[in-house]
């Protein structure tokens, strides 16, 4: 491949490459800097945070906030819970979504259009918070981690996109497998899924991030505070700047230290941000889809 590129490394091509690399570098810096500030701020003292508007290296370095977080049993517990629910939840939601998306991609399947319409309808119309709560309660899911997973098991938006990916799947490949005597489930499991790694990786990321960032489900469905997730803790410390809490604050409320807020933001975002770099290796491996289209 490199030979090919060398062969055609024309002058305008190189100029393009250079501009592209510089443009992307600027984009990377512009998006990275604010987060570096958040991280730096979490190690800074209160007066420094108040005095300096923006910095990437704190003058005085303090571990106060992290010491508090990592000696608090509740914090450690909620980190473990959040990671656990996210891992199990992502697997469950991927299962629900992919098993439904695959048959819906089969244009010859009877009832397919009806089901797609049902999905689209559900994407736009919902019964609202309280009726959903009553269903979850009726199923006995209150105070269980399933309440954070099952009510969002399929995101209709994701389902439609995955279905469309499958629609572009090589028909010949599946047909030949069928002739070899494989059942539809066999084809799905042994041929389609292994070739869909980029898509699985993408939607694993989407679902994982959604579960990780979910705030409403734990708020509504968990009474037992020993089951709280990180997002609840995060909202608790950033409450004074939460638009939903405006005018609703007890006048005696004393906001937590700024450094503490930033440290909790770091703890609550860093683990989930690490997921993408790990998934990236799967993005280059699906090769066959798209080679045959339609």
């Amino acid at each position: 491949m490199s030979d090919m590129h060398k062969l055609h490394n024309t002058k305008p091509g190189r100029v393009f490459d250079l501009i592209n690399v510089i443009f992307l570098a600027v984009a990377a810096i512009v998006t990275l800097l604010p987060f570096i500030y958040v991280v730096a701020g979490s190690f800074a003292t209160e007066s420094e945070l108040a005095r300096r508007a923006f910095f990437i290296i704190p003058e005085t370095f303090t571990l106060e906030a992290y010491r508090y977080i990592f000696t608090s049993e509740a914090f450690i517990r909620s980190i473990v819970i959040t990671i656990g629910v996210t891992a199990v939840g992502t697997a469950v939601q991927l299962f629900f979504t992919f098993t439904m998306a695959y048959p819906l991609a089969k244009r010859a399947l009877r009832g397919r259009k009806l089901l797609i319409n049902i999905v689209i309808f559900a994407m736009l119309f919902s019964g609202g918070m309280i009726p959903t709560f009553l269903v979850v309660q009726g199923l006995g899911l209150i105070d269980t981690y399933w309440a954070l997973i099952l009510p969002n098991a399929i995101n209709p938006f994701n389902l439609i996109i995955i279905k469309n990916f499958f629609q572009n799947f090589s028909v010949e490949l599946e047909e030949s497998a069928k002739i070899d005597g494989a059942s539809e489930i066999g084809i799905f499991w042994r041929i389609v899924l292994p070739l869909s790694k980029p898509i699985i990786a993408t939607f694993a990321l989407f679902y994982a991030v959604a579960i990780w960032n979910d705030f409403m489900s734990p708020l509504l469905y968990l009474n037992d505070s020993s089951k709280w997730t990180l997002q609840l803790l995060l909202r608790q410390v950033t409450i004074s700047s939460d638009p939903n809490a405006l005018g609703n604050l007890d006048p005696d409320y004393v906001p937590p230290a700024e450094g503490m807020k930033l440290a909790i933001i770091v703890i609550a975002t860093l683990p989930i941000m690490m997921v993408y770099p790990f998934l990236q290796k799967h993005f280059a491996k699906g090769l066959l889809i798209g080679s045959v289209k339609g």
Partner: peptide, 29 residues
């Protein structure tokens, strides 16, 4: 039953709609 203050109002309404209502409820306003 401790509820995070951020969306206390939502939680209050959901509780009133459910069949599991506490004997005393703090009302924030």
């Amino acid at each position: 039953n401790w509820v995070p203050n951020v969306s206390y109002e939502d939680r209050m309404n959901v509780t009133l709609a459910s069949n599991d209502i506490p004997e005393v409820m703090v009302i924030t306003g």
